Simulated assay, not measured.
Amino acid sequence: MASDVIVIGAGVAGLTSAIVLAERGREVEVWTCSPPSETTSALAGGLWWPYRIEPREAVGRWALRSLAVMTGLAGRPAETGVRLVGGTHAGLAPAELGAWAAGVPGLRAVQADRLPRGYDRGVHACVPLLDMATHLAYLQRRLAAAGGSVVVRPVSSLSQPARAARLVVNCAGLGARHLVPDPSVHPVRGQLVVVEDPGIDEWFTVVTDGRADPLYVLPQPYGVVLGGTAGEHVWDRTPSPCTAQAIIGRCSRVFPRLGQARVLAHRVGLRPARPRVRLEAERLPCGTRVVHNYGHGGAGITVSWGCALEAADLAEG
């Protein structure tokens, strides 16, 4: 066997899983069909917040473990791409968020008179907001420092890495649909617009119950990310001009200055959704142990370190 561990996928789930294993002394190689800068993770808005992901109890545990790691990384934002930024999530009270909310320092209710028109409740919190280009580059450097490597090598079946390593960690995201195969994995299309920052210093989100598209405004060092959409089972990655205008319109009703901001970029990503995250180990017929870590939906960043730590524990089981 050429390697001790092969991790499939170089998005945030794959890189964090590889780092945890490498820093525990394992020899790790990441196989990926695209470099980290071209993964779905690179297109993400970057806000830590549990969104479109189940099961709820486990998600809360993974999210809070990730929050602890990212809070440490936020002390070096230029290096890691992680900042702690205050913001408001409108449309829910703290009690409606789930048990994880009690673990977020300073999370508090916001009264209707402090919210934009149309919202009667909300919460305010200071949580990680990641510049994903900088963060993915940091993760690559950290993996290399631990002795791991990233290889652009497409994988068509689990038997390929299973022949080359003692342990395989499957972080293939949407690719798991065909790789495993797992037909329950499906895309949830998200379109974003990046505009010049007219002076937005806090994030703002409204996540609906599925009857309407989500709304989010995320100030990043490179501009303000405006979103978004949640198209179930939609594979098209082409930005829609009409959708972009609708996104800008919804966001500018909350922050009117955004309506005149110059558009810098359009992005479309496919969230790797599944009814429940698959985080478990199995033994392939050839005898190789596989740890599955995929199906994170719209919260891959939020649970990345928590899932990576649990995946590493499963690898040692």
Rank of each mutant, 00 (worst) to 15 (best):
E38Q: 12
S41D: 03
S66M: 12
R52C: 10
R61E: 13
V59Q: 01
E38L: 09
W49L: 11
S41E: 03
T40W: 07
I53C: 13
W48A: 08
L67M: 10
R56W: 06
A42H: 06
G60D: 01
E57F: 07
E57K: 11
A63E: 08
S66V: 06
S37Q: 13
P50Q: 09
V69G: 07
T71Y: 04
P55R: 14
T40H: 13
G46N: 07
E38S: 07
A44Q: 05
G60F: 04
W48Q: 07
E54G: 12
G45C: 10
V59D: 03
R65G: 07
W62A: 01
A68C: 08
L47K: 05
E54F: 08
L47N: 06
A42P: 02
A63D: 10
S37R: 14
A58N: 12
S41T: 02
E38H: 08
G46S: 04
W49F: 10
I53H: 05
V59P: 06
A63Y: 09
A58P: 01
A44C: 11
L67I: 07
T71M: 06
I53P: 09
T40P: 12
S37A: 15
R65S: 13
A68P: 00
P50D: 08
L43K: 15
P55Y: 11
E38D: 12
T71R: 14
P50H: 10
G46A: 03
S41R: 03
A63T: 09
S37I: 00
W49H: 10
A44F: 04
Y51M: 01
A42R: 08
E38T: 00
W49I: 00
M70Y: 14
W62C: 01
I53G: 08
R56I: 07
E38W: 00
G46M: 04
E38V: 00
A44R: 04
G60C: 05
W62H: 04
R61C: 03
T39L: 01
Y51P: 00
G60K: 04
W48C: 07
L64P: 09
L67T: 04
E54D: 15
A42T: 05
W48K: 09
S37C: 01
W49M: 06
M70H: 11
A42G: 09
W49K: 03
I53K: 05
W48R: 05
W48V: 05
P55H: 14
G46H: 02
L64C: 13
G46C: 05
E57S: 14
A44G: 11
S66W: 06
P50Y: 03
P50I: 05
T39V: 01
E57Q: 13
E57G: 09
V59S: 06
P50E: 07
E54H: 15
A63Q: 09
R56L: 11
M70T: 02
A63M: 08
W49C: 04
P55W: 13
R52T: 06
W48D: 05
L47Q: 07
T39R: 02
E57V: 10
A63V: 07
I53L: 12
A58E: 15
E38A: 10
T39G: 03
T39S: 14
S66L: 10
R52N: 13
S41K: 02
A44K: 06
L47P: 09
R56V: 13
Y51I: 00
R56Q: 13
E38N: 05
T39F: 00
E57P: 08
L67F: 15
R56S: 14
R52Y: 13
L64S: 11
L47V: 11
M70L: 15
L43Q: 14
L43M: 13
P55L: 02
T39H: 01
A42F: 04
W62R: 00
P55S: 12
